[in-house]
Design a protein around this nucleic acid. Structure first.
Lengths: 197, 197
DNA sequence: GGCAAGTGTGTACGGTCGTACAGACTCGTG
DNA sequence: CACGAGTCTGTACGACCGTACACACTTGCC
């Protein structure tokens, strides 16, 4: 329909496959060794495809990180949405921190790469910012704003230890910390500035 | 003295200056754009110097990150050592999280780059591991082990938000969170596993 | 001064990178 | 079927990279 003929791609899923391949390469070799040729080989597409679908390597990286951010946000959101009570929400958070779903070795590596790259690329900075913002939104389904902030810090920070310690996290300690913040930070904030010396 | 003649470098501070220049380049351009030539230009030394002092670019990066880790560890340690009481230690932690000293934009960028690079390079992984370990040791001057772990997570995680939000942190909230963990996590851990459903 | 051993460097080479682009291919339309 | 707009790709080029290395320089010892 319409007057002139339009885009009839031979391989509609191609672009997405290239993005996934890019994330694979980034996870395995790091941004500093991510090249057109490596991505093309991994995605099993010709080199020319990459310059056809993307305006250079920066554009490709930006879209790859955007895809990563979306995927993670959805998982994050779903995990928190599936919790009905506050106690379940706490369990969900512990799962996000310790469990292999989010914060798997691959995801953590990619997040580090994204954070690192973001500091040198405004568009990726925006993507990272949006990712943090959406995380907090998901948390706010269950907790007041300041508690969300503190919990989000735990969710960002604790997996870092997991990556570098190499050992699985102490679930009981994570759970206790989450619970402590949920229970007492809430109360403490109602009397702002108060601190028993 | 001794039999044969020995190393008499013309410029003893050269190696350190190269390392500092490398960190500057990494902070400004990221590891993925850090090259021998850029570092040499920044340090104002000839290109050949870099291959003379270092066994390739990887070796240079490893030593640069080692230097970064040392510098930060010392600062971290001194900050915690200068606290006499627990309350002062809490303030010191808030300062580490919010203050511009540690967690300045430059330092955070470098840390991100280090974490990212560590995932693809065992030697840097060891350096990062050691850095986290020493952080926790410094914290243990004032707090029991499990509290140190939770506090360290805050110190790692909160500056991330600072970088991406762009705005300064809510000091009162940071202080309240630190205080909450110090006060209540300690007590909670004495009854391990306990959680009021 | 002559010598040898170690310090430091300018240049050049092979390799890889990002990207441009001529042209092969596909397919709706007239 | 002819055609042309649009989709895709193999190849090639200039730029830049890491690194090697021949060579100049410095300095203690005779």
């Amino acid at each position: 329909m319409g007057g002139t003929r339009r885009e009839i791609p031979n391989d509609p899923g191609r672009k997405r496959r290239i993005l996934d391949a890019a994330l694979d390469v980034i996870a395995e070799a790091g941004v500093h060794k991510t090249t057109h040729r490596r991505i093309a080989a991994r995605a099993e597409v010709p080199l020319g495809s990459l310059t056809y679908y993307f305006d250079g390597i920066d554009d490709l990286l930006v879209q790859a990180f955007a895809r990563l951010s979306d995927t993670m946000s959805v998982h994050y959101r779903r995990t928190l949405e599936s919790a009905a009570t506050r106690a379940e929400a706490e369990d969900a958070i512990v799962e996000l921190i310790c469990g292999p779903a989010y914060a798997s070795s691959r995801e953590m590596t990619l997040i580090f790469e994204m954070y690192g790259y973001a500091n040198h690329h405004p568009q990726v900075m925006d993507i990272a910012r949006a990712w943090l913002h959406r995380s907090r939104e998901s948390l706010s389904l269950h907790f007041p704003e300041h508690v969300c902030l503190a919990l989000d810090v735990l969710i960002e920070g604790w997996p870092i230890h997991r990556v570098f310690e190499g050992a699985p996290l102490d679930r009981a300690l994570v759970a206790a910390t989450v619970h402590t913040i949920v229970d007492h930070l809430d109360a403490a904030a109602e009397r702002p500035g108060r601190r028993d010396a």
